[in-house]
Design a protein around this nucleic acid. Sequence first.
DNA 1: TATTGTGAAAGGGTTCACAGCG
DNA 2: CGCTGTGAACCCTTTCACAATA
Lengths: 215, 215
Amino acid sequence: MKPRAISESAVRRLSHYLRFLDEFEAAGATTVSSDDLAQKGGMTSAQVRKDLSRFGSFGKRGLGYPVDELRERLRQILGLDRRWRVCLAGAGRLGAALYQYEGFRRQGFDFVAVFDRDPVKVGRRWGDLEVEDVARLGEVVAAKGIEMGVIVTPRESAQEVADLLIEAGVEAILNFAPKKLTVPHGVTLRDVNLAIEIEGLSFALTHAGEIVTAG
Amino acid sequence: MKPRAISESAVRRLSHYLRFLDEFEAAGATTVSSDDLAQKGGMTSAQVRKDLSRFGSFGKRGLGYPVDELRERLRQILGLDRRWRVCLAGAGRLGAALYQYEGFRRQGFDFVAVFDRDPVKVGRRWGDLEVEDVARLGEVVAAKGIEMGVIVTPRESAQEVADLLIEAGVEAILNFAPKKLTVPHGVTLRDVNLAIEIEGLSFALTHAGEIVTAG
DNA sequence: TATTGTGAAAGGGTTCACAGCG
DNA sequence: CGCTGTGAACCCTTTCACAATA
């Protein structure tokens, strides 16, 4: 089975299309054209069609795509037609903000465990959870069937925690620590590096006039 | 002036190199080769050399790059040899977490104002700041010489706040709201969309076996 | 000799353009 | 007729490979 590779940016666009469809649905549309979707995202209609056609022929020539159907199909494709069990590694402020962010739950992501190494934090109540000692990570991940990990530790502990997660069988990690992590083949890693994003802004302001492209 | 466009991903790599150099410096190295840097980041040495050579010839053939000098040069290139005045739009939990994140201050980014529309939040003390009414955004941005905005509002208010920031003269925006914003040419926008990142993970787990490339 | 800096080649993602079809 | 689906063309980024050189 090797149905051709999909780029990370293409997957990101699928998520965008899903949000655009929500907007069209809210506006009462029953069909949308690739061009309608493209305009919401500042992209070309050809790109939208290429992205969608990779997963099947959902459109009707001359008409466009049925909003409802395409929306459901995209949710399936993105794996949003089920719920996922997620753990937080790091019980700091950023972790708390993510934990309480409604958007995750709404899209099907449930935080079912929080870990920290700090004995002061271990045992504290977080909603209906209790912060667990990171030493119990493997045990808890197995017991609760946790499938994704979100790393919100300081830079220094990030790789260590990633290794624990992977050893426990977690195959998808969202890393907020400002550290490039090494993961084995088969584990999916996404980085959200706040420092790097804001440095991109200072670069752009510093080099105003020179063009910065998308790539 | 048009010294060839620079891709966003290339700028991101410059930030990475800077962090790698910090690590090499901490380890006592005085020079590094493009291959040393490449290995830290899982990239090729040719890529490192191409990225760096765009800004000048910092290396010595047969030896590599002087750590100190390259580090300083990269800080200049990224605009980190000065401080930036940043405002937060949105006094919620995520905003609070970012506000208290030491990393920003350490790299030269100072939060000098926080805005919210909620009268309950306006007037509250945040460290040595006071939450301001978003109605005063233009005034405060001008008075404090604010250069960057970080949007941490709900989805619905994001575009509106972005427009206010831009009208006030802000030319760089970091957007955490899960909404694709429209900004005029000349304004730099970076998105951090947590929902989209985690959806990337569920996509990968759902399609395990099929390859997801970098692009 | 080891490593940079860089043209040339390769690779991969995006856009074009049009045949196909409702 | 309008819009999708898609092969081909295009373009940008990455990698290769080697001349240049400390």
